[in-house]
């Protein structure tokens, strides 16, 4: 039996990742700004049109100094899209939002210079693009996913041999397979894969999403509860059918 799970128009919410330049200032700030000006003088428009994140981790400055710094950068046409490593109390309204969970990527190309005065923050890690080919496209988890745990795997499919508890979540770039009861939330195709599916042995989910189309537990057909179910996307509708 195939059922349309929703009639109401849905809101599309998706995750995307973008590459940003990260600036890590050091103290004293005026000297750092001089070095930044120097860089800008040598390569005009280096920051133009680029998203820039300000990393203030381990930087001993207060709220006012941070606001000043953002202002100073603004005057140099460096628009800050987010701040990393700041305490929430340092950011008021009018300040860029706090960013978390950044991951280092390969070297950003930089204007050639002998002394490299400012660098976008980097870590000596390999380029993600090169690694992508060798990275696993799926993961298998042999334990139940407990309440409060989240499994985030944008690279591909997630298989759980066990149950997913109420209050747990799985976010996968590809399909999600649960060999157990699904009581938590699952978001499949989170990076824009409308072909992703969700399979589970016992449907008790709190929330389901495929490619940004969401479905709450309350809107699901009651006949599907407790059944082995697969879900997929047709247009803007999540479709479901029991697996026999």
């Amino acid at each position: 039996m195939t059922k349309v799970l929703t009639d109401a128009p849905t809101i599309r919410i998706k995750g995307r990742s973008f590459l940003a330049v990260v600036l890590s200032p050091d103290l004293p700030l005026d000297e750092w700004l001089v070095r930044l000006d120097d860089l800008a003088a040598r390569s005009a428009g280096f920051f133009l049109g680029r998203p820039v994140v300000l990393d203030v981790t381990d930087l001993a400055i207060d709220k006012l100094q941070l606001a000043d710094l953002v202002g100073e950068l603004g005057q140099r046409n460096v628009r800050i899209m987010g701040i990393e490593g700041a305490r929430p109390s340092m950011l008021g309204p009018g300040m860029p939002p706090l960013l978390k969970g950044g991951r280092p990527v390969s070297e950003m190309e930089q204007p050639p210079t002998e002394a490299a005065p400012t660098e976008p923050k980097q870590h000596p890690k390999k380029a993600t693009a090169q690694e992508a080919g060798s990275q696993p496209q799926s993961i298998v988890i042999n334990e139940p996913i407990r309440s409060g745990q989240s499994v985030i795997f944008p690279e591909g499919d997630v298989t759980v041999v066990g149950s997913v508890a109420s209050g747990a979540e799985i976010i996968a770039g590809g399909s999600v397979h649960i060999y157990g009861a699904l009581r938590g939330r699952v978001m499949a195709g989170s990076v824009g894969n409308s072909g992703a599916r969700i399979f589970c042995r016992k449907m008790e989910a709190e929330l389901l999403a495929i490619d940004g189309i969401y479905q709450m537990a309350e809107d699901m057909a009651p006949a599907l509860r407790g059944q082995a179910v697969q879900l997929w996307l047709e247009g803007d509708m999540i479709m479901a059918e029991t697996l026999s």
Partner: peptide, 12 residues
């Protein structure tokens, strides 16, 4: 039961 589930996750 849900809180216990959370604690089991932390124990692991």
């Amino acid at each position: 039961v849900r809180d216990s589930d959370r604690i089991i996750g932390l124990l692991d």
